[in-house]
Structure formats: structure tokens, C-alpha cells
Amino acid sequence: MARMSQKRKREAIAGYLFITPNLFGFLVFQLIPIAVAIVLGFTEWDLINEPIWVGFSNYRNLLKDPVFQLSVRKTLYFVLVNVPVQSALALLIAILLNRSIRFKNLIRTLFIVPWVSMAVAVGLTWTWIYNSQFGLLNEILVKVGLDKIPWLAHPDWAMISVIVVNIWQFLGFHIIIFLAGLQMIPREVEEAAIVDGASTLTRCFRITLPLISPVLFYDLIVNVIGTFQIFDLPYAMTGGGPGQATRVYNLYLYQKGFQFLRMGEASAMAVMLFIIIGITTAFFFRVVGRRVNYDLT
């Protein structure tokens, strides 16, 4: 008995030693910063003078700030266009690819090439393609007899142009996930439906979609959470402009914190982003989550 507990003790010590580096990083660069961010949100601080406690006034000021309101609207717009279009396109291609095919690995890999490419580089490439004067897109438009479009140069067009690039860049990522989901559907189910004489469309809506709804649902949530935090592409392509046309949430947060040095307000913004994401996720679980079919997983 004494030897047993001796062994347990050694095991516990080994356990703590093995997690030490990881836990150190987690505490110093994750857990403590989260706590500090919440505290900083209640202060006014420019990194130089001592922070001043201001209570909830950062939050009150932000809610009244027209640029903040604009950045929330811009971000919501980004999410609401990006997520449905991206999911629908990815699902369509995944269904197309979901059969025994040759070059399967090659095809899947080619679809995730944009995903492994640096967002800044992708953004610059598209800035060139979108170029009003010499860009490829306007070149094509002129060739087919249409007018040039000021893709990134005009406030009415800039946002949708950036969203298109985002949809393009992450499409392959979602294709891979949906394909994996589709392949979890047992062959017999599909075959039984074919025997029963169900048409392709019926099979798609009555069998395929309900059966992969857990995968769809999870992907949707991850996508919404990720898109709320969009930064790299608009930073590289427009910097928030023209005017404030593409000033999404995290761009404004970056500006507040690291250009205006208002660390308190920027921290409050970060905490608010977390709250917004939390509310949205909860909403999704309540409204959409109920219809998800978990029978098969």
C-alpha cells in the first residue's frame, strides 16, 4: 500500500513537470492577460501615465461613439454575407466531390492552396486584380463591353470586394470539413433511398443535409466566430477605407489601442467583442441548434 502511494506520488510529480512549460505559457500569455484585459477595460491608460480607474465610462463612451457603432454594423454585414455564401458554395462543391474519384488528394489539396497562403499576400494579389485602371477584372469588364468598377476605390464597392476575397480564401477549408462530414454518411442509407426511387434532389434535402447537419452547424459557429475577428485582409487591402467603408471591429480596436494609445477603451472593445460573440453563439444554439439532427453521430 505504501509503495502504491509512492508510485502515485511519482506519477503526480511527473504529470506536473510535463505540463509545466505549457501551463506556464497558458497562465502568462492567456489566463492572466484575459483577467488584465477585463480590469484595463475599466481604466483610462495611454501606456505612459498611470492608469486611471474610470468604471464603466469606456463602455458608455463606446456605445455612444458613431465610429464604434459603424464598425459593429460593418462587421455584422461582413459576417452575414460571408458565412452563408461561403457555406453554400463549399457545400455545393463538397457534394460534387463526394463520390469515388480519381485525383481525390490532388483536388482537395488544390482547393486549400489559398487557405495556406498568407492573408496579406492574398490581399495584395487581389488589390492588383481589383486595380481600377489596370486590374484584371476591369480589363475583362471592358473586353465584354461593360463599364469599369472602382472595386476598392469606392465606398459602395470596397466592403463587398474584401468579402469576396475572404470567401475565396477560406472556401477550401470548409470544403474539406463538409467532405469529411459527407463521408461519414453510411453508403446503405443512400442506397436504400435510391432503391426507394428518391430523386437526387429529394435525397439531397431529405437525407444528405439532415445527416450532416451537426457538421454544418459546428462549422457555421466556428465560421461566425472567426469572421467576427476579421483583420488581416481589410488591413492589407484597404486599411479601413475608403473613408470608413471597411472599418471592421478589429481594425478600429487596433487603431484605438496602437495608434491613439487608448489602451483602456481598446481593452473594453476586446471584452465587448467577446460578449458579442458569446451572445451570437448562444443565439445560434437556441435558434438553429434545435433543428440539428444528432442521431447519426
Partner: peptide, 18 residues
């Protein structure tokens, strides 16, 4: 903490590094 956006830790981590 996996759900918490990376932006939340950004400023405090910057302060530590500073």
C-alpha cells in the same frame, strides 16, 4: 479559454512584452 477571441489577450500581452 479556447472560445475567447485572440484580441482579448492582445493588449495585456503587449504590456508584458513592453
Amino acid at each position: 479559454t479556447m472560445m475567447i477571441p485572440a484580441t482579448v489577450t492582445l493588449i495585456p500581452t503587449y504590456v508584458i512584452v513592453l
